[in-house]
Simulated scan of single mutants.
Amino acid sequence: MTTHALPSPDAAAPDDPAQLLEVFKALANPVRLQLLQWLREPERHFPVEEGIADPDEVGVCVSHIQAKTGLAQSTVSAYMASLQRAGLVRATRVGKWTHYRRDEQRIAQLVDVLGRSL
């Protein structure tokens, strides 16, 4: 099994107003918000036994996210790309599959910035 971290977009500083706007836009969609919540505890929400990689290490495969949401693969991919642009998740390729996991460090930075600026 070969894993490759996908290049992440140039992440602006968490306190950059444009970056905060990306976060708010990503979280304004109820499905994207639910996805981020599910990814907080991947073993609880996704079929770990069917996964080809450790969900804590590399994340959850798009196909498992698609199955849980019942949405089209293209919709799930677009939602995950939005969360990635906002700096909330990281993508990793495992073979031909893309896996996503939360970026806990980045989320903590954003929570800190929000606590100090709002």
Rank of each mutant, 00 (worst) to 15 (best):
K96Q: 11
P7T: 12
A67S: 14
V111A: 12
T2F: 10
T2D: 12
E43D: 14
T69D: 02
R90S: 06
V89I: 07
F24G: 07
L33N: 11
L83C: 10
D56I: 02
R106A: 11
L110Y: 04
E22L: 13
A108W: 04
F46Q: 06
M1V: 13
H64N: 14
T2W: 05
P14R: 05
M80Q: 08
Q34W: 00
A5D: 10
A13G: 02
P9I: 05
L39C: 07
A13K: 13
D10F: 12
R32T: 06
H64Y: 11
A67M: 08
P17I: 11
T3G: 01
Q109K: 10
A18L: 13
L83Q: 09
E49P: 05
L88W: 03
H99P: 05
V62L: 12
L118E: 11
N29C: 04
P9G: 06
L83I: 03
N29D: 14
Q109Y: 04
R32D: 05
E22Q: 09
A67R: 15
P14W: 03
L88M: 05
A18N: 00
G87M: 05
L83E: 06
T92G: 02
L33M: 09
A5N: 12
L6K: 10
I107F: 05
V60K: 08
A72S: 10
R106V: 03
E41C: 00
D15N: 12
G115R: 15
L36C: 07
W38S: 02
E22P: 00
L71N: 10
S117H: 14
A5P: 13
R116M: 04
S63I: 08
E41T: 09
Q73W: 11
P14V: 04
P30F: 12
G51Q: 13
V60S: 07
I65V: 15
A18G: 02
R102A: 03
L71R: 14
Q109H: 15
D54I: 06
V62R: 15
P9S: 08
E50A: 15
R85M: 09
D103W: 02
A18R: 07
R102V: 04
K68F: 01
T75L: 09
V23H: 03
V94A: 15
A78V: 00
P17V: 12
W38V: 02
L71D: 05
A26L: 06
P47F: 11
E104V: 06
F46L: 08
A26C: 07
A13H: 11
F24P: 00
V89N: 00
L83A: 09
A108F: 04
L20W: 00
A53S: 10
V60E: 04
A18D: 04
S77G: 04
Q19T: 00
K25P: 01
K96M: 04
P17Q: 06
